[in-house]
Every structure is written in structure tokens, then in C-alpha cells.
Design a protein around this nucleic acid. Sequence first.
DNA 1: CAAATATGTGAAAAAATCATGAAAATTTAT
DNA 2: ATAAATTTTCATGATTTTTTCACATATTTG
Lengths: 218, 218
Amino acid sequence: MKILVVDDEELIREVVKEYLQFDGFLVDEASNGEEAVELALQNDYNLIIMDIMMPKKDGYQAVKEIRKIKDVPVLMLSARGEEFDKLFGFDLGVDDYVTKPFSPKELVARVKAIIKRNEKSGTKLEFGGLVLDDKAHEVSIDGKVINLTPKEYDLLKYFVSNNHIALSREQLLTNIWGYDFYGDDRTVDTHVKTLRHQLGKYGQYIKTVRKVGYKFEF
Amino acid sequence: MKILVVDDEELIREVVKEYLQFDGFLVDEASNGEEAVELALQNDYNLIIMDIMMPKKDGYQAVKEIRKIKDVPVLMLSARGEEFDKLFGFDLGVDDYVTKPFSPKELVARVKAIIKRNEKSGTKLEFGGLVLDDKAHEVSIDGKVINLTPKEYDLLKYFVSNNHIALSREQLLTNIWGYDFYGDDRTVDTHVKTLRHQLGKYGQYIKTVRKVGYKFEF
DNA sequence: CAAATATGTGAAAAAATCATGAAAATTTAT
DNA sequence: ATAAATTTTCATGATTTTTTCACATATTTG
């Protein structure tokens, strides 16, 4: 678990670093935006803690540049009472932020929360007893792993990650089969059929939307 | 945009309420966990702001119960320096939290951030208890989903997105059926009939415009 | 008020759409 | 290369939806 701490005040960096290391994180430091960008692109951090006001390149700018290349979680530090609007106006997709002065304990708690959130999100999608573990590329029902064919898996994954959204056959074909699929629309139907069957009692959560296509609804 | 504020201190509720109302949110209040659960299950809130320490039923418990039924975003309030572990130990999937004492301005900023994050909307057309969720391709009345046929759905969608505008049968036919429809005018009447019936008490909002056609007027 | 015109309604006919099973084609594994 | 698994196509029948149409009811007009 590697974290990059970016702040121009050495004291803050040191304190934060100490607390994080105590909890078993590996910590790198940067004292301005430029350094931060450089380090972030070279290494794979699980999280970047970034101050806003810094010399050379401010936190917004740095996050913007990093995010262009890498999708790494960011926690922003800001002086109390200022900059909130900017933080939300810019849609940087910041994961959290903490206002100075902060308690190191709180910071660490938030860091853990973010990391936990991001770990989970990439990998497991749960709907009651239906679990799709994307990392393991595996689906289980009530704890029992079921064997899906590749297409079935892709289809299910697309369905569950678009819960409550009606998807047209065309949409499904272009997103799962690829834009260059020239076959029959109705091939989707067949796969939905087999997938429903495979999912047993969870099959009912794939609903047909007449004249449109299908949707997953849990 | 409706928000439920849950805290046992009236002063806090009042302050929060005032700030939120200033930004155009509708605010309900509850002073303990039990009330909160009751209200949350009856109404559709866009967000719940929940204190942790409360009499009768604490915030954890309340969130847990609500989340069993409804998937509503939650922002937790907690006294500084306590309870972080609990908050993250329990995997309640809380969207954010703010430690007391907090600045109301910050709270509002976070509220907006959460709502923005959770907004898959821009898709929902609401008229009192009549909601058309276009993404889900689904219509509900007072929270209960009703089953519309494709034509009924298209017709309703066209009506509500042309609120207050009289629409001729021809107009409806060309826009919903397609320019190449060669059938009878009066087929519109039949669909209006079934749609009115399906909409129950909201059926009356589709008004007949004699000699012209129909209009939706809410 | 009666005739003419327009809309509401119910039921039946016609049409569209989907679920399904099986076979053909393709891909992957042995 | 052969077998096995997966994917695709396609025809069928079941189901749902759409349309038509005749008659009822309501509104307007002379």
C-alpha cells in the first residue's frame, strides 16, 4: 500500500507520514505540484494526499494532470473555510477532502476508508447472494461458484454494472461484442436465455423491456 | 431534492435546515433513530444526514435498517475524535461523514457533492407522485411501479415532456408512431384511454382538447 | 330540441415481439 | 486433427401489444 503525500510544509508531511507508516503504509513525499506529478506518473500509488496551496504548481493543477494519465484516488487538504466551491466546481472527481487543521487520526481513518472503497469497487459487485468478483473473474450464487461462459460473464457484468438501466440490444452488442459485430440482434436473446438459466433464482432480475431490450434490476 | 436531517439537538437541526433550505432543498427533520427509519421508509429522500449518538435508536442502527429497504445516500455526523473505527468497521456504505463541530457551509458543500455523485438523473420526470424514469424505462405512481406497454410509455413520455401543450392526433402519430404510419387517427384515442386507466388518479391530467387532440397538464 | 359532430369504450382481429430449442458455425482445448 | 465447448442463427409457437371498428356517450350547432 503506497501513498504519496504532497504538501509544501515539511512538518505536515512528517506527521502524516509517521501516522501512515504506523499503520503499515509505505509513504513517499513531494513538496510541490511538479514533483507530485512526476512521482505519481512513475509510481503506482494507492492514494495521493494532496495539499491545494503549493508553490510551483497547485493541487488542482497537479491532480488534473495526473488524472489525465492515471486513475488514482485523491484526498485533498485545504485550509478551513475556503476553496470548497472550487473543489466541487472543478469536477476533478476527488475522493475526499480534509480541512486543516485536522487530527492525524481522522486523516488516517479517511485514508483507510478511501482505500477500502476503491479496493472493493474494482472487484466485487454484490446483489444479495449473487456475487460477481471481477478480479477472480468469477460469479457465485449463495456462496457457490457457477460456471459461466465468457459471453455470459461479460453480459452479466455489463448488466449488473448498469443496474436499473434499460439496455437496448444494440447497446449490448456494441459494448460487449464490439462495434464491429455484424450479426443478428436476436443473438442477445439467446444469451439472456442461457444467462437467466444459469443464474437460477436470480435470473428473474434480468427483466425484458419490451421493444427495447433488457435491464438488470435488483 | 428532499433531505432528511436526523439529530437529537434541535439547534443543530435548525441550523442545518436553514442552510439547506437556502440552497433550495426541501428538508424534513427527525430527532431520533426510530423517527428517522419511519420517515425514510415512507418518503423518497435524496439524502439523509444522520447523527450517530441519539436516544431510542442510534445512527448506525437506523442506517442499517433503512439500507435494508432503500438505497439512499447517507452522510453521517459524529463528534470529533470518536467512533471512526466503528464507522468504517461496520460496512454501512456511508457516503461521507462530517465531524462536529462543522461549518454549515462545509456541510452544504458535501451534501451537494454527494447528490451530484449519486445523480444518475436528468432522466427522471416528476409530477407529484407520478415519476417517469427514462433510464430505467419505468413509470411509478406514488412509489409503485406500474406496467406500461411500449406505446403507452412512449405516449406518456411525449405527453409529460410537452406539459401544457395541446397535441393533435396527427402530431402524436408522426412523433410517436413515425411519419410512415398509415392507420386510423382514432387509434390514438384508444391508447389515451388505456393510458388514462393505467395512470389511475393521474389519468385526469391527460385532458381532451376537443377538435384538436389531447394535452398533459399538471 | 334535434341533428351533426366528436370523443369514450369494449371486444375482437391483426400484428409484433419475445422465449425457446435445436442445429449450424465457429472457436478453443486436447 | 479431433473432440469439446461456445457462439450464432433461425424457425416455431406462445404471449403480449396494437389496431380496428361498432356502438355508446358527450358536446356543439343550427
